[in-house]
């Protein structure tokens, strides 16, 4: 899984203020309204995919693509909500964005044993430990979000380590989502770092 949000050299102060005062009306409400319907459809597809995986050991490819596109849309929106990116997030499942990347490899086969295990005991061995850590990360993330607002307002730059922390939290929760959403058999690591191979790709692309 590869998730990244581009750290910009400089951030627009006017966009920051616009988002802070009117973002609710021109970004969040229209996006969330549409996302709600897409999420309902996504939950129907997920439920059906559960049965398909149980009997065939495969996540239907088009269902999988739909879920990934839904996650991409969420990521685009989240990047703006947290002021991690400038610009207006594209609408729709096929929307594109230069600032955010989410690549999820399609698993040709999924283990049915793991599938049942995560359904029956996922709350205990996945949700509970990960949410416990993510809860504290989210609190710290909120503090950093508040501080970064002033940093961007006065200096026009978002401290890189803060940016990495926020992206790391999103990456972590996305990995948990993928595992619990039957899209991966790989147990999510207790880490916010990108996968080693993806880190290489990312560093090569920035050089």
């Amino acid at each position: 899984m590869r998730l990244s949000i581009k750290h910009q050299e400089s951030y627009s102060r006017s966009e920051l203020l616009l988002r802070a005062f009117f973002g609710l009306f021109y970004i969040f409400i229209p996006h969330l309204f549409l996302l709600l319907f897409c999420a309902i459809w996504g939950s129907i597809l997920r439920f059906i995919a559960w049965w398909v995986i149980l009997f065939t050991g495969r996540h239907p490819e088009s269902f999988f693509e739909y879920q990934v596109n839904l996650l991409r849309w969420n990521l685009r929106l989240q990047a703006r909500i947290l002021n991690l990116s400038d610009g207006y997030p594209a609408f729709g499942l096929s929307g594109t964005d230069d600032n955010t990347t989410l690549e999820v490899p399609y698993p040709e086969k999924l283990s049915r044993g793991t599938h049942l295990l995560k359904t029956l005991f996922g709350a205990i061995y996945v949700i509970l430990p990960h949410v416990f850590v993510l809860y504290f990360r989210a609190i710290w993330g909120m503090i950093l979000n508040f501080l970064s607002f002033w940093s961007v307002l006065f200096t026009g730059s978002y401290p890189k380590s803060w940016h990495e922390f926020q992206v790391g939290t999103i990456r972590w929760s996305t990995r948990v989502n993928l595992y619990m959403g039957y899209m991966s058999d790989e147990y999510p690591p207790f880490s916010s770092k990108p996968d080693v191979e993806d880190e290489k790709i990312e560093s090569a692309s920035t050089e």
């Binding site: 129907i44 597809l45 059906i48 495969r58 239907p60 269902f63």
Partner: peptide, 12 residues
């Protein structure tokens, strides 16, 4: 798989 999914919409 897409064709199969159509019948499973009964679980919608």
């Amino acid at each position: 798989e897409d064709a199969m999914g159509a019948y499973l919409m009964m679980f919608g």
